[in-house]
């Protein structure tokens, strides 16, 4: 292992966050706070409890998941896209680093940022709603697994995208809608039977459901299924990223 290289890339990526602290941390925190004010207090007060949890508290896991997914994808995709765009990627490609080390450092940094942000949002949430976490270790496990999986997806997008538009397109057109429709703000049990079946094809449902289970012990789908799906995403994304690096797809002519 070339640990010096992993450390160099990881710290470089983390330093990028520090430079853009306002945009990276403050913006999501403010956005989430607005969600709590609007959905938690203003509207939430008129919505009955869901599975014994107040609506404001119910949406916390979904909101965190929403941020975790978008941040993982955008951090990781930008992290690898930008050196490609500015052509400084030559350095990474010519360095004695393995594919695993490249993924570990870029994805590791993106996942770290996304997890830190999620914890900040979790802390913010405690100011607005009463929270309880029944399975804290599982909560951390789902957080980490999801962050790594979707940072990998971001990494894949960053390699695939050859312009800024494409880089924005996937998060905007796919990730965000799937997250909103994935039970972040409601239980899919509340949906009519037909839509409930459709929802089961939305991968985000499994992520949100498992994560919410770690908070309140109730879930839309069995927690084992959530875990299995999360691991499946991880495996698929690992496979695609490995294939890209091995063939030099859009990196090496």
């Amino acid at each position: 292992m070339n640990w010096h290289a992993v450390r160099a890339i990881y710290l470089f990526e983390m330093a990028r966050t520090k430079r853009t602290l306002l945009q990276s941390v403050l913006a999501p925190v403010i956005t989430t706070s607005l969600y709590f004010v609007v959905f938690g207090s203003a509207i939430g007060a008129r919505i009955p409890e869901i599975e014994g949890v107040s609506y404001g508290a119910f949406i916390v896991p979904g909101l965190i998941m929403l941020n975790l997914l978008t941040q993982s994808v955008s951090n990781a995709s930008f992290g690898i896209f930008f050196p490609k765009f500015s052509r400084t990627i030559y350095e990474i490609l010519s360095a004695p680093v393995s594919h695993f080390e490249i993924v570990l450092s870029y994805v590791g940094a993106a996942a770290t940022k996304a997890v830190i942000l999620s914890l900040i949002i979790l802390a913010t949430a405690t100011f607005f709603v009463p929270l309880r976490i029944e399975h804290p270790l599982w909560m951390i496990a789902f957080l980490l697994l999801t962050a790594v999986s979707f940072s990998l997806l971001g990494f894949i997008l960053g390699i695939w995208a050859d312009n800024f538009e494409k880089l924005q397109l996937v998060p905007l057109l796919i990730i965000t809608p799937l997250t909103f429709l994935g039970g972040s703000f409601y239980s899919i049990d509340m949906l009519p039977a037909g839509w409930r079946t459709v929802s089961l094809f939305n991968p985000v449902v499994y992520l949100v459901s498992g994560f919410r289970w770690s908070f309140y012990g109730s879930a839309d789908v069995a927690v084992g299924v959530s875990l299995a799906m999360t691991l499946l995403f991880l495996a698929v994304f690992v496979g695609v990223a490995t294939w890209m690096l091995r063939t030099g797809y859009r990196l090496k002519p």
């Binding site: 010096h4 290289a5 450390r7 160099a8 470089f12 400084t88 030559y90 680093v97």
Partner: peptide
């Protein structure tokens, strides 16, 4: 191997010291 590319490709926001140290790390030193 060390490579000086033809194009002036640099990270705009990095400092000279950091970018040179970064490369050293990247090459496992």
């Amino acid at each position: 191997v060390g490579l000086v590319p033809q194009e002036l490709t640099t990270d705009a926001f990095e400092t000279v010291w950091n970018t040179v140290s970064f490369t050293r790390g990247l090459f496992g030193k």
